[in-house]
Design a binder for these strands. Structure first.
Length: 439
RNA sequence: CGGAGCGUAGCGCAGCCUGGUAGCGCACUUCACUGGGGGUGAAGGGGUCGGAGGUUCGAAUCCUCUCGCUCCGACCA
């Protein structure tokens, strides 16, 4: 993509409403534009990141055998009356009336809809287990939206639902999601820590929030430092195998949000030099809730014995749009964003330091064509701007690699390849630079 | 929902107290010089001062109502 033709409205100054770093950088980098409180449009650069994150989530869900569906944003109030949540949900639910005076709502979540679908079609234990998810916009009318896309009213979320015959089978489904969540975040270079969460009336130990540490996190969290040194991507996962030992490995160490925190246990279980007390951002939540929805909504299956039992369900959420902000919170410096390569809107920023100079234009055009042909996503800054402005914008939007060509270097046949994260710059021949990026 | 603020050019702000031709910086347009970390100069364009009502000869400024947005707290993927 040529920057001269790309819609990238970067800002030199920070809009006054933005308080935290991810919000500031998302506005300054031209990723989003606020439409109203807690509601944002996604501009080209931001949209690319959102889609990249969504795709990683999708791949890791599919790997577990979960199947993607797409449910509506607008749901009927009647369905929610059946589960009893229409009244319970309160002011956070955006209620809508259609032209026939039917009561509708903009879905804040999808347990009711998925349970209705499942219950209508699956009647036998032989069609279990199943796991379905979708990635869809949701709306919760927060009293006080803030922090940009981290706490918006409208947000993109992956929510998945498992269906099993009994709680033991439900645990198998839960474990699959548990592991896939760790992998999902790891692929975004995030170290997510599973923390025990409230299980509500169901009880048990099957509820975890996935938290990443960041100074601007909304809640205080406590955990063992070893979590920060683990790499879940090191081994391949066989989702058909027994995942319990692996889950145990990840739940044996202390980790809790402030509402679940037990200071005495923390101090007895975790050596002093391994204790981490920090702030965290919740980027996912998995939860087994048994027959809470299947019972009132009539999603029953027959057992091998011929009995009819409500199906056992779990639900699994990932805040996709929140992750865009969360990744920035976890990965930035005072110049701007530093994208992990897996979610970066482009892999390479090609900087022509002297647009209009014959040698610079020729070299950049050629590099741009070769990288594009090799399938490398390149944002080519071919604007008539000064070098300083180009560098500032590149640093701000945080592409992992900057390929810099100017008259000075090209005289020697050299270009510069700069790593955004480390700041390391190598002077290379054009071919060597291309090999590094396309190889 | 309690508390506190703010709405003046795309962005950041001044002007309001004490009413009298709407300003500054950045951005934008044109030209010249310049050319490796947001350059210099010159000349320009851009405004229902959030909206409605009122007071007044005259309102961005004073009064009333209203809408929007932000911050702190309680609540949430």
């Amino acid at each position: 993509m040529r920057l001269s033709q790309y819609f990238l409205p970067t800002l030199k100054e920070t809009p006054s409403e933005a308080q935290i770093v991810s919000h500031r950088y998302m506005l300054r980098a031209g990723m989003i534009r606020q439409s109203s409180a807690g509601i944002y449009s996604w501009l080209p650069l931001g949209f690319r990141v959102l889609k990249n994150i969504e795709q990683i989530v999708r791949e890791e869900q599919n790997a577990t055998g979960a199947q993607e569906v797409l449910m509506p944003t607008i749901q009927s109030a009647d369905l929610w009356r059946q589960s009893g949540r229409y009244e319970d949900y309160g002011q956070e639910m955006l209620r809508i009336t259609d032209r026939h005076d039917r009561e509708m709502l903009y879905g804040p979540t999808n347990e009711e809809v998925i349970t209705e679908i499942f219950g209508a079609h699956v009647k036998s234990y032989r069609h279990l287990p199943r796991n379905m998810y979708h990635i869809q916009w949701k709306f919760r009318d927060e009293v006080r939206p803030r922090f940009g896309v981290m706490r918006g009213r409208e947000f993109l979320m992956k929510d998945g639902y498992s269906f099993d015959l009994d709680p033991d089978a439900g645990r198998v489904a839960y474990n699959k999601m548990f592991i896939s969540y760790l992998r999902t975040y790891a692929r975004m270079d995030l170290q997510a820590i599973p923390m025990k969460a409230e299980t509500g009336p169901i009880g048990g130990d099957m509820s975890h929030e996935f938290i990443i540490l960041a100074d601007t996190g909304e809640s205080e969290v406590f955990c063992h430092r070893d979590f920060l040194e683990r790499d879940v991507l090191q081994r391949d996962i066989d989702y058909d195998s027994d995942l319990q030992p692996l889950v145990d490995e990840w739940t044996s160490l202390y980790a809790a949000t402030d509402d679940m925190h037990d200071a005495a246990r923390f101090e007895s279980e975790v050596p002093e030099d391994r204790r981490v007390a920090a702030r965290g951002i919740e980027v996912g939540h998995i939860f087994f809730f048994g027959d809470k929805y299947s019972k009132p909504l009539g999603a029953f299956v027959s057992t091998p014995d011929g009995d009819e039992v409500p199906v056992q369900m779990g639900s699994y959420g990932i805040g996709v749009s929140r992750l865009v902000g969360a990744i920035i919170e976890a990965s930035h410096d005072d110049k701007g964003i530093i994208w992990p390569e897996s979610v970066a809107p482009f892999k390479v920023g090609l900087v022509n330091l002297r647009t209009g100079d014959e040698a610079c234009d020729a070299a950049c055009d050629s590099m741009y064509a070769k990288l594009s042909d090799a399938g490398v996503e390149v944002l080519y800054d071919d604007r008539e701007e000064r070098a300083g402005a180009k560098f500032a914008d590149m640093d701000l939007i945080g592409l992992p690699w900057q390929l810099i060509a100017g008259p000075r270097g090209l005289k020697e046949g050299k270009v510069e390849l700069k790593n955004r994260r480390s700041g390391e710059t190598d002077e290379l021949s054009i071919d060597a630079a291309l090999t590094r990026l396309a190889g």
